[in-house]
């Protein structure tokens, strides 16, 4: 992965010349982004307008920062933003760590059929919709009627009293993290497995000649090769750290207000606040706020990554 050490004038001219056809490969994607991502952005002005259905996006009157009021004056903004960041950090950290460990572990399996079985299994949870996850979680934690559940039954076996999980906000960041890991670690481990596939054999051969054990090779050799992918994944998540995982969180927590102190994120709060009003201006305003913050964070992270290693920076 190094640039060619020494180029002749002829080579340099030739590679510059080749550049002119390279961009053709990007054309389809560029058209896509223009049509579906950039053109609609003109609609973002609605964040600063008092949206009226008849007047449409461009005819509605301006109302400055009025659309942002409902969120920032609620007194909850700090806690909600805090939850959003905290939960996202938990999710991404736990998911990546487990994904790496799983990829390394799966890589060690020798038996072909077993390995295929494991690889297929860990990917399964990704397909299950959040609503079904919510139902299963309820079966585990609450049973029917809210007083039972598999977990409580097990606690009772050890003479520990049942816990009414859906009325205790405390444990939920951990519970949600477990759910996310279960849902996504397999998905990410596929990416990591593909990365392990790309590691040159010579490196392992050298390691074996040095007498390294498999465990040492896994952590000294394999792991460093996974760093670039990890950096990419983390950087991609950093920008979205202000965007809560609405789909999963809402499916599980729903309208259970008791749990909001530790699980309410920006997206769920906005959804609840605006679902009867249907005010597109307010929804767009908060979305814009999340995007702007995300940009600032990513810019910061990109600069930071640039300092650490030029090779793995995104831009």
């Amino acid at each position: 992965m190094t640039t060619a050490p020494h180029r002749t004038m002829r080579q340099r001219r030739r590679s510059l010349h080749r550049d002119n056809t390279l961009w053709i490969l990007a054309i389809p994607a560029v058209i896509f982004f223009f049509v579906f991502s950039y053109a609609p952005l003109v609609g973002l002005v609605v964040a600063f307008k008092d949206y009226n259905i008849r007047d449409g996006i461009f005819g509605s009157p301006w109302n400055g920062l009025e659309n942002f009021r409902f969120f920032f004056e609620s007194g909850n903004a700090g806690r909600i933003i805090g939850n959003t960041i905290f939960l996202n950090v938990l999710f991404i950290t736990a998911t990546i760590v487990v994904a790496i460990l799983m990829a390394i572990a799966i890589n060690e399996i020798r038996h072909t059929m077993l390995r295929k079985f494991v690889q297929s299994s860990v990917f399964l949870p990704y397909f299950i919709s959040p609503i079904v996850i919510s139902i299963i979680l309820q079966a585990f934690l609450a049973g029917v009627g809210g007083q039972g559940g598999v977990v409580n039954d097990m606690l009772n076996v050890f003479s520990i009293p049942s816990v009414n999980w859906y009325s205790e906000p405390g444990p939920w960041p951990v519970i949600l993290t477990i759910v996310k890991v279960w849902q996504l670690a397999g998905y990410y481990s596929v990416i990591y497995l593909a990365a392990i596939t790309a590691i040159p054999e010579e490196v392992y051969e050298a390691g074996m000649l040095d007498g390294a054990s498999r465990g040492q090779m896994a952590f000294r050799i394999t792991l460093p090769y996974l760093v670039p992918v990890t950096v990419i994944l983390v950087m991609l998540s950093v920008g979205r750290i202000f965007f809560g995982d609405f789909g999963t969180i809402y499916a599980i927590i729903g309208d259970n207000g008791v749990l909001y102190p530790t699980t309410d994120v920006i997206d769920t709060y906005v959804f609840r606040a605006l679902r009867t009003a249907g005010d597109f201006g307010m929804t767009a305003a908060i979305g814009l706020f999340q995007s702007v913050v995300g940009f600032v964070l990513v810019a910061g992270a990109a600069l930071l990554a640039r300092r650490i290693t030029r090779e793995t920076s995104l831009f």
Binding site: F70, S74, N76, A273, M282
Partner: peptide, 8 residues
């Protein structure tokens, strides 16, 4: 704005 907060 107040009604949105009240709803939440």
């Amino acid at each position: 704005a107040e009604l949105a907060q009240l709803e939440a």
